[in-house]
């Protein structure tokens, strides 16, 4: 699998106001589509991003870089969120400013995200490509074909990588 091309995303300067309107836009989008499991968070974010940043179209390599970065951010948000919630459940320490800007709904994951995140860290040590595929698929919500396009390899090899990664994670989480 060739290395992901992360280079092409031109840094776009987003003033804070733009940023706020970006979130508003995303919220509107979501209002009509709640519960739709096929909704792709990263794709949505990307579309929104493009609209607010004023760009009319994006080069394919820019899109790939964005999706990779977005999936990474998404994972960090979600895992952090899960970690915070479990800390709260344990009556845990509220020292950390638990600011939840948009009153995030509860996650209905059938997976322990914190444990998964830790397992992914280990997988990354062993095989960074597999970890990236999982990140893009599970946290970024991308299809195999989209992942293939982003990482410049065939859909088939992504499917194979995914099945091995899943097996590895399943074993790791069972322990």
């Amino acid at each position: 699998m060739p290395p992901a091309s992360n280079d092409a995303l031109m840094p776009v300067v987003l003033p804070t106001e733009t940023y706020a309107s970006l979130r508003a836009l995303a919220r509107r989008h979501l209002a009509g589509e709640r519960g739709n499991h096929t909704l792709q968070p990263t794709a949505l974010a990307h579309e929104a991003f493009l609209r607010v940043s004023g760009a009319t179209a994006s080069k394919p390599e820019n899109t790939a870089a964005f999706l990779i970065a977005a999936a990474q951010a998404m994972r960090s948000i979600l895992v952090d969120h899960a970690r915070r919630r479990s800390a709260l459940k344990r009556g845990g320490n509220a020292q950390r400013e638990a600011v939840e800007p948009d009153a995030l709904p509860a996650l209905e994951a059938n997976v322990d995200l914190v444990a998964l995140d830790e397992a992914l860290h280990r997988l990354r040590e062993l095989d960074p490509e597999l970890a990236q595929v999982v990140e893009l698929r599970y946290f970024g919500g991308l299809s195999d074909a989209e992942i293939g396009a982003a990482l410049k390899c065939s859909t088939r090899s992504i499917r194979r990588a995914w099945s091995v990664a899943r097996a590895w994670l399943a074993r790791e989480l069972e322990r």
């Binding site: 995303a26 709904p105 919500g141």
Partner: peptide, 18 residues
């Protein structure tokens, strides 16, 4: 994908939210 992830996407509130 993680259920509810889309809601959390809220574009790049990402880094902010977390």
């Amino acid at each position: 994908p993680v259920p509810g992830a889309a809601t959390h996407a809220l574009a790049w509130s990402g880094v902010l939210g977390a």
